[in-house]
């Protein structure tokens, strides 16, 4: 999915900012990943992974760490 990738990144960063009550990056990243796994359609998670693979510097360190923890959804069975 190509989605408006700027918007996708903005939404993901919003999640990271709201869960970031401490400086403990791995802890926050785990919570962000859990949130994305539970609430985001896999296609949107997939698009985020693609951004992280191609243009990693568009993501904050916390979000980068979170994306690395996303559930294995790449190669989702075709419809």
């Amino acid at each position: 999915m190509t989605v408006d990738s700027a918007k996708l990144v903005r939404m993901a960063e919003q999640i990271a900012a709201n869960l970031a009550y401490t400086d403990d990056v791995p802890l926050v990243a785990a919570r962000v990943a859990d949130h994305l796994n539970r609430f985001w359609d896999p296609r949107m998670r997939h698009a985020l992974v693609e951004i992280a693979n191609g243009e990693a510097d568009r993501l904050s360190p916390v979000l980068k760490a979170a994306v690395a923890r996303l559930r294995g959804i790449i190669g989702e069975p075709a419809a």
Binding site: M1, T2, R38, D41, M44
Partner: peptide, 18 residues
Amino acid sequence: VEPGYRIPNMFDAAIDGE
């Protein structure tokens, strides 16, 4: 088992042609 689209996601995906 995977969550689907929320309303705003549906709109974005529609504009995207999906």
